[in-house]
């Protein structure tokens, strides 16, 4: 099957526990190529865990994660028994998926340019010249090429996050996961990061975004998913979901949110 007819991401009855605490209690979700899906929900609802299961930063212990139709992390034999795959293979299967983290996770001992070039040199095995050209191209895309020689510690949070996005973009991902990308930022820096994400969405990047930015979610997403207690409590188009919440959980979540942030949309 070609990737056009494949779902970008398919979660089937996804479950994950930390010790006795079951964080994900069976999640089903489809994300098509080109779609932008925002995940909202209170803290502890399982948003980040769900996202981290998709690129196997967390090993899920029930259900399935499929990326482009491929089962991630496990090998399923004819009887349906699962066996863990080696890290190398999992990484191979996730080549098209990149994550952007809340804490940026740039490498502080490398300059901006080195941060973006490093995976191109070490993983993609590009020549130094190719890697440098590619790195500068993605840096200019996020408006950070003028800081190429700075160290992460010399940048603002918003600038660091833009560099982190550039570092991911360098790997030509088809799917990008954002784990609360603006939650660690000062309010005045949130906009510059959202702007970059918005332009990615317009270019047709497949994106799954865990966020607390309701206005942004309403604006860019094709689908909003509301998570509560490890389950999808409600999902749908942003307009419908924000204006006519069906469940009490979402109603109270949204009203708490607007009390704190004033008018929402």
């Amino acid at each position: 099957m070609s990737t056009n007819t494949q779902r970008a991401i398919k979660l089937v009855d996804l479950k994950k526990s930390f010790g006795d605490n079951q964080v994900l209690k069976g999640i089903d979700l489809d994300v098509n190529y080109g779609q932008v899906v925002c995940i909202i929900g209170g803290s502890g609802s399982g948003k980040s865990t769900m996202l981290r299961c998709i690129n196997f930063l967390e090993q899920y212990d029930g259900g399935e994660v499929l990326v482009s139709g491929k089962l991630i992390g496990y090998n399923s034999d004819a009887q349906g028994n699962l066996s863990s795959l080696p890290t190398r293979v999992v990484q191979q299967d996730l080549t098209d998926v990149c994550m952007v983290f809340q804490q940026f996770n740039l490498w502080p001992h490398m300059t901006v340019l080195e941060n973006v070039m490093s995976p191109l040199l070490r993983v993609r095995r590009l020549s130094k010249k190719e890697a440098c050209e590619k790195a500068l191209a993605v840096l200019s895309k996020v408006g950070m090429e003028h800081k190429q020689d700075a160290y992460p510690g010399q940048l603002s949070g918003g600038q660091q996050q833009r560099v982190a996005i550039a570092r991911s973009l360098g790997m030509d991902p088809k799917i990008m996961l954002f784990d609360e990308p603006t939650s660690a930022l000062d309010p005045e820096l949130v906009g510059e990061v959202l702007k970059v994400m918005q332009s990615l969405a317009q270019e047709g990047m497949t994106m799954v975004i865990v966020t607390h930015e309701m206005g942004f979610a309403a604006q860019v997403s094709d689908q909003v998913v509301f998570l509560a207690n490890g389950r999808i409590a409600e999902q749908g188009e942003p307009n419908r979901l924000f204006n006519e919440p069906q469940t009490d959980q979402l109603k109270s979540f949204l009203s708490t949110w607007s009390e704190r942030n004033g008018s929402m949309l």
Partner: peptide, 9 residues
């Protein structure tokens, strides 16, 4: 995590 995510061994 970021390094593993980008494919580092």
């Amino acid at each position: 995590e970021a390094a593993y995510d980008l494919g580092f061994s």
